[in-house]
Design a protein around this nucleic acid. Structure first.
Length: 422
RNA sequence: GGAGAAAUGGCAGAGCGGUUGAAUGCGGCAGUCUUGAAAACUGUUUUAGUGAAAGCUAACGGGGGUUCGAAUCCCUCUUUCUCCGCCA
């Protein structure tokens, strides 16, 4: 959520930035400011009351020691009165606090300076493009035909065992998965990331920490018995490692990478764009996460983008980078770059990575801060990106590298695969 | 899953109803001494909210309760340890 400090001190700026999402949030921001003022007034009132009660309690103690029973009893009466009042004030205060956080939860992050105003994906800006169109044989096949022809992915079987969107990878298909994961992890390691293997079920507090809750409640698989959620991305557990943590300034930036399966209910998705590997309920992803100093988080964002570029180049996949417009960005993001790989047979762009700077939006919920040189605690900036998500990479690899007598996989994967051709 | 014990500041560890936000030790920081360092000695050292500041308020695993007053008593949840059971 946005920090109260930013809203209070830079009100107009926040409103203007939010407007880039294509919705006017002035009323919400004003409401936050009003609630905050009410809350602080109420709090002062309560604290004064408590201070009085504390003094009385001390006096009572003194009087008892001195053996002055009658006076002590008188003071007690007074204290009981105050307590009644305090209780009332406390209720009112927590009511105001709830309203305030509720309101803050509803407001998305303020897009940063580079973000263009806009509402739809068509308004995203293409900022980079690389690679040539793959040369494909006549009657090039979409990946869902290739996966069955070469017995790489069995969608029917997954359907039988679990349901739609839970494919079974078999033979070279399974080995390709494993090769990609290891390739991505090793690339991140040599870029200085620290490897993490986190739990893939998280508690409610973690869901709130990175902003999946309450915003995307229905998009996560949930086990009510234990009140745990299946992670939609490794971002959730890895970023939550820093929940309620105060870091040292010179520790920053922290660079972590983790491979996890990811689970998404994708409620409301349907149609041909979910065909094959295009959209799944369970998929594998290697995620890079950085905890950064606010002063250089945007340089770090560029570094992360460069890292992903490097992966795409090594895989030899034609791709482009979009800078998302305000309306197409995720709730928590201040600036997002999407990577799209060209899928030769489907003749369309597939989103394979999303790299974002959340500024202090997550850090505020997480209460993740660093101690600055002058001893003050400041919120960190959090960033993350897919490096990379597997299914659409697999789809593009299969489609773009198909020939009439097999699929020639890119060289960077050969050591990981133990074969070069499917 | 059953039985028992425990949870206090960066760490270790006292306190077990009344100036205890918390003894003591270690660690950290500053200083004295020293050419410098070590040792020794002296001082200092939690966080959040609010306020211009002084100050005030809150926090001893989380939540609730008893009391004029709770780190201290009660309830509850969580976590850790020991023993038993089960089991990758």
């Amino acid at each position: 959520m946005l920090t109260l400090n930013a809203i209070r001190n830079n009100t107009q700026e926040i409103i203007d930035r939010l407007a880039k999402r294509g919705i006017d949030r002035t009323a919400d921001i004003m409401q936050v400011i009003a609630l905050d003022e009410l809350k602080r007034a109420k709090q002062t009132q309560l604290e004064q009351n408590l201070a009085k009660a504390n003094t009385i309690a001390k006096d009572v103690g003194e009087l008892f020691k001195a053996g002055n029973r009658a006076q002590a009893d008188l003071k007690k009466e007074e204290s009981i009165q105050l307590k009644e009042e305090s209780r009332q004030l406390e209720t009112e205060l927590s009511e105001l606090e709830n309203q305030l956080t509720q309101k803050l939860y509803e407001i998305p992050n303020a897009p940063s300076a580079k973000v263009k105003t806009g509402k739809t994906p068509e308004e995203n800006e293409v900022v980079f493009e690389w690679g040539d169109n793959p040369v494909l044989p006549e009657n090039a096949k979409p990946h869902w035909e290739l996966t069955s022809q070469y017995q790489l992915v069995d969608f029917e079987l997954g359907n039988k065992i679990t349901g739609a969107g839970f494919p079974v990878y078999t033979g070279k298909g399974a080995r390709l998965q494993r090769a990609l994961i290891n390739f991505f992890l090793d690339e991140a390691l040599s870029a200085g990331y620290y490897e993490i293997q986190p739990p893939i079920l998280v508690n409610e507090a973690s869901g709130f920490g990175t902003g999946q809750l309450p915003d995307k409640e229905g998009q996560m698989y949930h086990s009510p018995i234990d009140n745990l959620y299946c992670i939609p991305t490794a971002e959730v557990p890895i970023t939550n490692m820093y929940r309620d943590v105060i870091l040292k300034e010179d520790e920053l930036p922290l660079k972590n990478v983790g491979y996890t399966p990811c689970f998404r209910r994708e409620a409301g998705s349907y149609g041909s764009h979910v065909r094959g590997l295009n959209r799944l309920h369970q998929f594998d992803k290697v995620e890079i996460v950085q905890i950064a100093h606010p002063d250089n988080s945007y340089e770090i964002l560029e570094n992360m983008v460069d890292h992903v570029k490097g992966l795409m180049r090594k895989l030899g996949l034609k791709f482009r980078i979009l800078r998302l417009c305000g309306g197409d960005m995720g709730f928590a993001s201040a600036l997002t770059y999407d990577f799209e790989a060209w899928s030769g047979a489907q003749q369309k762009w597939l989103e394979v990575s999303s790299v974002s700077n959340f500024e202090t939006f997550q850090a505020n919920r997480l209460k993740c801060r660093y101690k600055s040189k002058d001893g003050k605690n400041e919120f960190v900036h959090t960033l993350n990106g897919s490096a990379l998500a597997l299914p659409r990479i697999v789809a593009s690899l299969l489609e773009n590298y198909q020939t009439t007598d097999g699929i020639n996989l890119p060289e960077c994967l050969h050591p990981y695969l133990g074969f070069s051709k499917i």
